[in-house]
Nucleic acid binder design. Sequence first.
RNA 1: GCACCUAUGGUGAAAUGGAUAUCACAGCGGUCUUCGGAACCGUUAUUCUGGGUUCGAGUCCUGGUAGGUGCACCA
Length: 556
Amino acid sequence: MESTIRNLITEALQAKFGIADVPFSLERPKDLTHGDYATNVALIASKQLGKNPMEIATDLMQMLQSADSRIASVSVAAPGFINFELNRSVMLDILADAVKDSWGQTTVYAGKKILVEHSSPNLFKPFHIGHLMNNTVGESIVRLARASGADVSTMSFPSDVSLGVAKAVFILLEKYGADFVPQEVSVLGDAYVEGTKRYADDETVQSRVKEIADNLYAQTLSPEWSLYERCKEFNIAYFEEIVARLGSHFDSYIYESEAGVDGKKLVLAHTPQVFTESEGAVVYTPDESQKLHTAVFINSQGNPTYEAKDLGLLELKFGKHSPDLSIFITDAQQVSHFNVVLDAAAHINPVWKEKSLHRYHGRMSFKGQKMSSRLGGVPLVEDVLAAVIEEVKEKNADITPEASEMIGIAAIKLVILRAMAGRDINFDPETSLSFEGDSGPYIQYTAVRAMSLIQKGAAAGISPHMQKPIAGTELLERMIARFPDIVTRAQTEWAPHYLVTYLLELAQAFNSYYGQHKVVDEDTEASAYRLGITHTLHTTLIKGLDMLGIAVPEKM
RNA sequence: GCACCUAUGGUGAAAUGGAUAUCACAGCGGUCUUCGGAACCGUUAUUCUGGGUUCGAGUCCUGGUAGGUGCACCA
């Protein structure tokens, strides 16, 4: 349709004014009262023609008025826009697909292999609210990718070996002995915090922790190694449980310990060509023009740093999965780190940089305070969820446990997803969390209400269909018909918030309609049509929310 | 110090260079013997600042101001 209109404009321009090559745009106006398509061609051409844009627009409008049977009307608006409104039948043709399984499936990345890495946990640290943000953004990107025609696989990159882990292991050994078997994740988290404190001001602790770190890196058989292995296994099980609750599953893991071994080899193999030795460490110094900082890849102790681990990760990722696009999600603080790593990686294998895409999210502060699990006192995901679910139950005492879980998660996820990724969110449960207005539960509620109407119709023997259109639903039809375009945009820019904005507007439009019209009444024919629209609305909300990682309960 | 990011009603956010800057919360005023009120309708109030580019700037360029983040052996 778009190219048809574009051609019609070009032809009219040539026929009427004898000019070509006007770089005009043809867009889908965000304001639906401006029609289905709008062009600025008259504004662009006015300089070249030396005429008033309104005159040009009016001339073109007259020529385009009946140029295509799918165009219902063409109008001119100041300062010189030409708006096209399509026939209702065009919308209804699109809506015929809205109740099919394929609704919302696009071909944006058809045939591509996409790998998404997100939610990477730090073992020995409980899953806190920062991870929740990463998981929410990551899961939504996974689901957008799955709706794009791509072959998608997911992975996570657990941080399983580090000095911090060694500090925790030191405490566990000291407190519980080598035979320690973890029962609760909080014990590990507490050990992490305590270890950090003890390490800070005690030299004998420092040397012992470093020794433990060496043994963990080298996988040397030792009391710390076997204790550590039990904790690692326990941690992964905990991680899988909590992300499953949030709707995520990982096809595979690459551990930092593996990536570290790989990364160290890679760095050494490319020294001194790419990396250089400096003060006992191996570093990478980017070209001056890059405006990046020098980074240590192997420290003077001989262990790979975060940089080398991420380099090793690139080799492992591309070696195992050979993706056409490798997306990874982290918080914004790591932007310059990855710029350096990718810059270094490009010297080893340019593909690693070309096919990698870093999407970052902002930081979540809690009641105005930056969260750091290293210092303790961090809100954990399970605690936050429990608090929110409690609120849901207060609002509705009859709610099922499944429904309250879905509603609580929707409320939190929407706070994160409605903002453009990359911005910080100050998460204050008092004000950030909402069950009304621009909120996850509002959209869920609208979907549940729509389903309830359909059931009411069924009880009255009315089944939804769209054979005989009636007046009053045109706006809803137009909005629903745009769903595939919105999904396409969200996928192209990897920006779930476009979808959030759309779903909120759509839910509002439906609720507004509902407030003014009776959907199911004595007029069976008209009721069936209204239910037909209601049905397409329902599937659109369900599919849209699913792409955000949000499920909808049956009742709420 | 250098680099990157951000600045929109009282609050939280949206806006592919486009039309009267959109939405929610809060406030104020209504709908209400419901098709499921987690709803609907009305109303008050917003682009940090100076310059520039453009037919047109919240958006692009540039100078400032304010905030955030990163800059060698943590991840």
